[in-house]
């Protein structure tokens, strides 16, 4: 996987977060986050539960609102302006822990819905694109089934394909393998690695350290709503600087 880490990262800034703060009521969940993501970069965010890592990536497509600071995605600043939010959301794909496929629609309809209604793509064309991405995640034969008939790993691959159908420039993954059986994790990770090799800008919240070592340019470790440490994967895993990181790594890699 050495070639994955060497893939070029452009100088263009995809996401710029400056002095961002967020509170849930009184609780200060994200504290002074500063982060720049270049186009083509692949970032893994890890940290203990409750450290704010999911909240951080959900702020990037405004599923969560931040109260202070600035988030600029692809040159568009996220404010209360609904037009900007919709613009950012159509450029940023998101994959959830629990897949969140639409159970009342077939796989193909799940994939074509947003292109048809948001991008106004003709139905035929949307279906062709959908089949292309289903081929890519290796389940074209499931196109006319319903999500409930698929295994967890297949559903998560459909969810990835659904995001890709919108031709996003950035992909966010929120613990995409945490709800899967061990045997299914690999098929999802393979899909994600393939995507990384194609140069997609990715931010991935995950505890799959193998994945981080294989494809990430940077690993970010968060605790108590703050970025505690970030580094290249090799340095991060072999030579962590902060004590908190060392403790975390010893706990998740210790057995």
């Amino acid at each position: 996987m050495a070639e994955a880490a060497q893939m070029q990262v452009s100088d263009e800034v995809a996401i710029q977060i400056t002095n961002m703060n967020k509170w849930y009521g009184q609780f200060h969940v994200l504290r002074d986050i500063n982060m720049t993501v270049q186009r083509g970069e692949r970032i893994v965010i890890c940290g203990p539960s409750g450290s704010g890592k999911s909240t951080l990536i959900r702020c990037i497509n405004r599923l969560e609102e931040h109260q202070q600071g600035q988030i600029v995605v692809d040159g568009t600043e996220l404010t209360n302006d609904l037009k900007n939010i919709d613009k950012v959301r159509s450029e940023v794909g998101m994959v959830f822990q629990h897949f969140n496929l639409f159970p009342h629609l077939t796989i193909l309809e799940n994939l074509t819905l947003a292109p048809i209604w948001v991008r106004k793509v003709p139905k035929r064309e949307a279906e062709e694109t959908a089949m292309y991405f289903l081929q890519k995640v290796k389940i074209p034969e499931q196109a006319h089934k319903y999500p409930g008939q698929l295994s967890g790993g297949q559903q998560q691959r459909v969810a990835i394909a659904r995001s890709l159908c919108m031709k996003p420039r950035i992909m966010l993954f929120d613990e995409p393998t945490s709800a899967l059986d061990p045997e299914m994790i690999k098929e999802v990770l393979d899909t994600m690695i393939q995507l990384a090799q194609e140069g997609m800008t990715m931010i991935c919240v995950t505890h799959e350290m193998g994945f981080a070592q294989a494809v990430a340019n940077r690993v970010i470790f968060m605790d108590q709503g703050q970025i505690v440490e970030q580094n290249e994967p090799k340095e991060f895993f072999n030579n962590p600087k902060s004590d908190r990181t060392k403790l975390f790594l010893s706990q998740i890699l210790g057995h």
Binding site: N61, L63, L82, D86, R89, S90, V92, G93, M94, F96, H98, F99, N100, L101, F102, L113, A114, W117, V118, R162, S163, M166
Partner: peptide
């Protein structure tokens, strides 16, 4: 309905009425 259905619809860029 699970919260995730709203979030998935939002994340795909569908507006409220869609």
């Amino acid at each position: 309905l699970p919260r995730g259905q709203y979030e998935a619809a939002d994340a795909l860029g569908l507006d409220y009425w869609q």
